[in-house]
Design a protein around this nucleic acid. Structure first.
Lengths: 253, 253
DNA sequence: CAGTGGTCTAGACCACGCC
DNA sequence: GCGTGGTCTAGACCACTGT
């Protein structure tokens, strides 16, 4: 198990030559993975063993490992060990056609699961009143889901819809858009705002990745043909699992 | 200076009650900022002072501060101190029209500067040969720039163009697209792939943010009217400074 | 229960900024 | 020169996982 490491680590004479110790160890491990000495799923020696092998303190070893964990190269399981991350399959989503997550995955032949985080009628937050154009006494339906494809959590999706349009959020079984379709409230147009954010602890736990991992926050405002706002959704997509693809055309043509 | 902190920190009796120490300190500071006790630009006491005030070790204080730094709430300057982050102005970019960074900023009346990272003719990498459709002996022009708007570094942009289209990259002064326009090689269509990634150390240093900060990596492949690929650009945009906006339409309409 | 990662301490020295 | 953050050490104890 750790003979492999003895070769990798001792050959490099870490304490010699210039540079910061934790960075040299970090690069050594990263390089070993790049060159295939360490394969995805492989376990590393314990932090204490690495410290002894390299002659570094455990704190310094932890700093090197911690940086690779925050970059998504390694992951650690309390009480179990440190391992090389399995590359997850990346998904693509178009930024020009308007489809829901469920429809998108069905087209790809993925096994999609959802875990309900929230599904009910609430008094609207000020933000929701403004965006959805709610009257003072109107309620809002909130639908929050964790989206899981082939067993991998991909996104946290929280939608808000006027209760007058969706009075019974509990009745949604699969697709929100399918439900809106039934009642003639399917949106025909949407604006999406995309930003990169570091995951907070709560969303990181839901998505099964390290806090601070890069993710895409997408705020979508969807409109009916009449121009009325029908849906406002704020989603968090795992950065390591999702690509968004857009086609641009020359403004002058 | 630190009387304010004495009140904040001592009133909370950190070492008492449950929970992890570094998280309690982290939350205490975050809360102080949320509630306005600490304003953007304000300095915090030194790590050693905070340690003494709270009765924690400096390592633990650093762990609490480090988490807030990685979230972009605080920033630290070596030899100077720890400060509350100034909110940077966010920029929006459309994902439906094809414009270059220079043109985009000029429209906004921003003072744009570029710092050259790279500008020359090279032997192409395999990836470049495939994407740009280069012959075996054809060279590639690389144009790498750090984009700075109103003094704030916003993006790292690295473009690759066939040398037969852009034989003299040194002659570019401002806009790459303006240059391509001159020689009749302006792209009319582009595909963009957008992903969220954690910044590595090098790009983080260029953009002036903490390593690990969330950023948007955008790979753009641009096409001439003839269908030939004219440009492949890989850019890194600061996540805290950029929103991308897309308009979606129903596939069925 | 043995081994793992997670937290925490009390020190030390270095590198940088500012006066 | 003095104070700041940045690195590093040698230990300790806790919490979780596996057998």
């Amino acid at each position: 198990m750790s003979e492999k490491f003895d070769a990798i680590l001792s050959s490099a004479n870490l304490p010699q030559s210039g540079g910061l110790l934790y960075l040299r160890l970090r690069n050594l491990i990263a390089q070993s993975i790049d060159e295939g000495f360490l394969a995805p799923g492989d376990g590393l020696p314990s932090e204490r063993d690495i410290a002894q092998m390299t002659g570094l303190s455990r704190v310094t070893v932890r700093k090197a490992l911690g940086q690779l964990v925050s970059e998504g190269v390694l992951f650690q399981r309390h009480g179990s060990g440190t391992f090389v991350t399995q590359q997850v399959e990346r998904f693509e989503q178009s930024l020009s056609t308007l489809t829901s997550f469920s429809e998108d995955m069905a087209r790809r032949d993925m096994e999609l699961r959802s875990q309900w985080l929230d599904r009910g009628i609430y008094a609207p937050a000020p933000e929701e009143m403004v965006i959805l154009g709610l009257a003072g006494d109107e309620k809002v339906a909130r639908v929050g889901r964790l989206r899981i494809a082939n067993g991998v959590p991909l996104a946290v999706e929280r939608a808000a819809i006027a209760a007058s349009i969706l009075p019974d959020p509990q009745s949604i079984t699969h697709s929100l858009y399918a439900k809106l379709n039934e009642t003639g409230h399917r949106p025909v147009r949407a604006l999406q705002r995309i930003a990169a954010v570091n995951l907070d602890q709560k969303n990181a736990a839901l998505l099964g990745v390290a806090p601070g991992s890069a993710s895409l926050r997408i705020e979508r405002t969807a409109y009916l043909a009449s121009g009325r706002v029908v849906e406002f959704t704020r989603s968090i997509y795992r950065g390591d699992a999702y690509d968004f693809v857009a086609e641009l055309r020359d403004a002058k043509s």
